[in-house]
Design a protein around this nucleic acid. Sequence first.
DNA 1: TAGATTGTTAATCGATTAACAATC
DNA 2: TAGATTGTTAATCGATTAACAATC
Lengths: 230, 230
Amino acid sequence: MGDNATTHVMAKSKENKKGASDQRVSKAVVSRLSLYLRELSRLERAGIETTSSTKLGEMLGFSDAQVRKDLANFGQFGYPGVGYRCSELTSTIRQIMGTDQRWPVALVGVGNLGRALLGYRGFANQGFNTVAAFDLDPKIVGTEIDGIPVFSLERVDKIVEEKSIQLAILAVPANAAQEVAQRLVAAGIRGILNFAAVTLRLPDEITVVGVDLAIEMEQLSFAMTSRMSQ
Amino acid sequence: MGDNATTHVMAKSKENKKGASDQRVSKAVVSRLSLYLRELSRLERAGIETTSSTKLGEMLGFSDAQVRKDLANFGQFGYPGVGYRCSELTSTIRQIMGTDQRWPVALVGVGNLGRALLGYRGFANQGFNTVAAFDLDPKIVGTEIDGIPVFSLERVDKIVEEKSIQLAILAVPANAAQEVAQRLVAAGIRGILNFAAVTLRLPDEITVVGVDLAIEMEQLSFAMTSRMSQ
DNA sequence: TAGATTGTTAATCGATTAACAATC
DNA sequence: TAGATTGTTAATCGATTAACAATC
């Protein structure tokens, strides 16, 4: 879930080129922005200096107009007749996404999945730093996994405060997720990446992004079953 | 990717109530269907026998009209004045999604994440059965992990054929993903759940659902950075 | 019967695409 | 200058919501 709720956020105003946020942007725009960023990083690594809305769109399956429109929500970053400078657009999008800064992250639930996520290095260079893990199991509380200390969930308020953590990855069993999530919110967490297969009911100001692997797989079985076009 | 491409599939025709598919349905509809299913299973487990579009919508944050419209793509499953029988609607949606049958699945790339996915039981009761894992590392090829045999990637054609596998979970490093994906397609795979942080370029008839954890986290940092409404 | 809720049509809203003047 | 490509406005398309007759 997360995929559907048309969440909106503030974006550019008319007067300020490369300016601050004051308009609503759909969630679809934000995830395309992430894809542009991923593609731009690849181009940069390949030593390619400039690209265009047409090329970016082609690589990702969007129209050139879509690419330009998405970026236009936040300002003017291109050069007519030239395109976009990859390194420049990369850092601009990083700023927009908030990944030009580092985010300390808590991982809650050190089971199979949680453990794998602790070992996952994909976050780190994206600006996310898992700085603490929480679990109830006394066998692992007090240990370190991949260099990350595992604390008792009892201590979540203290540690979250101490380490100024705003984001959490929730990887506990579905039946515990709602209760644990509320506890995280009480501790000061404002955004949750939820791997549990339940819809969390939390205050509106808390951002929840859901990742349900069974649901993603269902997309595949649906496509296999129906003849899917495109 | 995945999230955005407005993928369309065939759905109900006018004449056949509860009938076969012949109309286009957006990807957004399909993922909401998954959420309805998840919620209905919960209600069933709680012993609740009927529900309504209003109740379902409230639980998930959609309008009642949305729920009815989504279902209307596939037929008529409700009872005016009464609502929907949970068990009935559950099995209907399972049929629509293709999860009333079992899907043998291959897992490719037995690293940290792959290993966790092998141990993950969430798929199984959703109709997905990981029946084979593939890797290059000779230290694990030939072993079993959580009861699932690990084969050399060299043997993918033979095993995929033997076990009639159509779906694969791709959990290899980003720089290997494109090549391995092509190999899977050559072996007969038709749907891929891609955990690698790259956009795969594959023939149109192959369905790819992308899960990029860094991108999901970026949704959170974006929400933290911009004041997000709703 | 009165109340509840469906399925569906029509109205609204938002997102994507097309087109083009401005710019390099 | 000619060619390429932007940013943006207007046109199109699709998805969501509102409304309501039909049904239980």
